[in-house]
Amino acid sequence: MKTAGAVRGNISNSSNLSQSLLLHAFESPEYGAQKHAKFTILKTRYWAIKDVLTNNKYRDYFTPLPYNSGYFMCIKLRGGLDGEAIRDILIKKYSIGIINLNNILRVAFSAMAASDAQELFDGILAACQDFESK
């Protein structure tokens, strides 16, 4: 019983501080405007990515998978491409960091400017072409 009480007293209440801070933030008069501003930023990034990916030049190398957020999305590499090798080229040559999951590249765009969307996907395209030319 003492152990169960210690667990409840220490672990169960560990989020009290964060919950209190969030409650305070939610009650702030600026909260609504701040939330709307961040939503607008995410929405702008989302649509910038959608717009860039309408260009057919990427189709020979990758296909975007369905996504609906302003944080990340995935692209499926066409057969014959090596996601890990392309990930390595991207970081070393183009300073673009992505995650490779079995030739599906996870692209986090949550911290980039919407204006960088073209450069991001052109970099991925260039890395795919670099891989092929080896």
Rank of each mutant, 00 (worst) to 15 (best):
A85D: 07
I89P: 00
K43F: 06
Y58I: 07
D60H: 12
G80S: 11
P66T: 02
L53N: 04
R45M: 03
T40I: 10
G83S: 01
T54E: 14
L42W: 03
T40N: 04
D60W: 07
V52C: 11
Y67N: 05
K76H: 09
D60M: 14
Y61W: 10
F72E: 09
D60Y: 11
L65H: 03
D82Q: 07
T44P: 02
N68A: 13
T44G: 01
G79P: 12
T63E: 15
P64Q: 03
N68F: 09
P64N: 07
N68Y: 08
G70E: 02
D82V: 02
D60C: 12
K50V: 04
I41M: 06
L90Y: 03
F72H: 11
G80I: 08
Y58D: 05
F39W: 09
F72C: 11
A85K: 07
L90R: 02
E84Q: 10
F62E: 00
I86K: 05
L77I: 04
T40G: 03
I91Q: 13
D82C: 10
R59T: 14
Y46V: 01
I89W: 03
N55R: 09
N68R: 06
V52R: 06
N56Q: 14
Y61K: 09
T63G: 09
P64V: 02
P64W: 00
I91K: 12
W47H: 11
F62H: 04
F72K: 06
N56V: 10
Y71L: 12
Y46L: 06
C74S: 13
I41P: 00
I86H: 05
C74G: 09
P64R: 02
T63I: 15
K38L: 15
L42R: 11
I41Q: 05
L53V: 06
I91N: 13
R59I: 12
N55P: 02
R45Y: 03
F39S: 12
P66H: 05
K43Q: 08
G83F: 00
T44I: 02
D82Y: 07
N68V: 03
R87I: 02
K43L: 10
N56K: 11
L42M: 11
Y94H: 11
P66K: 08
F62M: 07
D88W: 07
G83L: 01
T44A: 06
F62T: 00
C74H: 11
L42N: 09
W47A: 12
R59Q: 15
K76S: 13
